[in-house]
Design a protein around this nucleic acid. Structure first.
Lengths: 288, 288
DNA sequence: GTCGATTACGTATTACGTAACAATT
DNA sequence: AATTGTTACGTAATACGTAATCGAC
């Protein structure tokens, strides 16, 4: 014999709040309604759940046990809706997590082409760890890492490389160098923006924080680039896309941390779903 | 957001049976009603659960996930009623399990005296193991064992002894003996009844089965005792209660298996509840 | 008097059945 | 023709609110 959910919900509130009045206010229903519901519940179970004296009800021993099991049943009910809605969304969206912004920009048109009609969800993360966890939790279906993940549960493929550059005014002391290292940049005030994923970790570790002028938006960054002659970070991929500013030169950074190889990965179990995407990615990489 | 139980119940039936018609027959409601319920469920979850073509509905991927979680929610609901009813009964009954009938007869009046108003439930078991398991499962609150249980979770106290006798016609070859052993009884046809707990195990092990004329009821046994001069088992406790038959003599059986010491036990956690009963039992044992 | 629970009664919601219909097999 | 699902409509069950009552602090 099954108990209707609304009875369990009301009972749980009564058990938690202690009085019918308090519970009725929480549930936005009247006390008489609750009073009847509790009687109905007791009647359906065929047991007494409360110790009633004139204007007071308290859970008896059976009531305490019932409250415990009611909570479990309600939890299972809540989990149902939560998981079903989550699953439904997951099958009609393709979700991509990335450690850097550039691969997202490159992949979005590809994904739209391969999964027409599906919603695209992209998210930037600072660390590979949170991306890997997100993949396991089905928060992401595809992730872009900056280090090769040694995990058999993953299907992984090499993606593009990116080389960090510093962009300087033409008349800057470093402007005529073929390359610079992070140590050359020490003491320089450099413009940056958030939303650059793991690059933030790299630059913060290599340079002291007072030197990094971190902006909260790309707009603010671009404003300051135009309005000042301060150096800012760039990359071969950005430059390839034509992201240049007049009277500046861009110089590669020689440290190995300034060069990255991106890896694209999905769960092995979902390999088939992304086969054609991975093939396209492979040919893109070979071509580029 | 919570889903009413009746919707989950109906959905579970549809998922299990495959068609609305089959499910509606199982649930004793009409198809149109089920059709509406499934639409309502989809509407409340905000997802599609079925793949519909003209006169056919099948679960889609989301529907399969939903069916799984619906089953869990329903199981939790069923467990609620089951456990609550079981608990409620357990607190208004005292349940005794025993390895032999005699202690039950002795304890019933005592229990009625100590727990007025409570329902008494008694059960006979053949083995100490099933009694101990029943105690842990809260199937029994008190058990009578024939061997001392070495378990710290139990509160245990020595109860009465019982000595097995054989009752024979006065002119039987063994009738003038002071005592006999099981080996003396070999080949003798002996009347017995079921419902004697562990004694059945003892006698079956000591004597070969064709010699034991086992009756399904005490009535049948008593009929045959009156109608024949066949030997039957007895005990000091039964004799003490005046259970004698004319022209028969009762002789103790000398094997150590024919003598038993009963132990009464409850869970240590319920020790307090039975303290006064245990005290009475102790004084009874000392007196007897 | 206030707070908390119950009873009595009317109402609005809604889950259900019947009948008719549509589409496949 | 038989099977299966949907739509339309009326009905009966029932969950709820309002008002009144009772007791206790």
């Amino acid at each position: 014999m099954l108990i209707e959910t609304y009875l369990l919900e009301q009972f749980e509130a009564v058990a938690r709040r202690g009085t019918l009045l308090a519970a009725s206010e929480e549930l936005h229903i009247s006390q008489p309604s609750l009073s009847r519901s509790m009687k109905k519940l007791e009647n359906e179970l065929g047991v007494s759940l409360f110790h009633r004296e004139n204007s007071k009800i308290t859970l008896n021993e059976t009531g305490k046990v019932a409250a415990d099991y009611a909570k479990r049943a309600l939890d299972a009910n809540r989990e149902l809706t939560e998981r079903v809605i989550q699953f439904d969304r997951s099958i009609r969206t393709v979700s991509l997590g990335s450690c850097a912004p550039f691969p997202i920009n490159e992949l979005v048109p590809l994904l739209q082409e391969h999964f027409p009609g599906k919603t695209l969800s992209t998210e930037l993360q600072n660390s590979d760890e949170s991306l890997l966890k997100g993949l396991e939790n089905h928060l992401y279906q595809l992730i872009i890492l900056h280090e090769y993940p040694n995990d058999k549960k993953l299907f992984c493929q090499r993606y593009l490389d990116e080389q960090l550059y510093i962009t300087l005014p033409k008349d800057h002391p470093l402007a005529n160098k073929k390359s610079v290292s992070f140590s050359n940049l020490a003491g320089l005030r450099i413009l940056m923006a958030t939303g650059i994923g793991f690059w933030m970790t790299v630059t913060s570790e290599k340079l002291s924080s007072p030197d990094l002028l971190i902006q909260n938006s790309m707009d603010a960054l671009n404003e300051l680039i135009d309005a000042s002659s301060l150096p800012f970070f760039n990359s071969d991929q950005m430059l390839r896309l034509g992201y240049r500013v007049p009277d500046r030169v861009s110089i590669p950074i020689s440290d190995e941390e300034a060069h990255v190889t991106y890896w694209i990965a999905c769960l092995s179990s979902e390999k088939e779903k992304f086969r054609s995407l991975f093939n396209t990615v492979r040919s893109t990489v070979l071509r580029g």
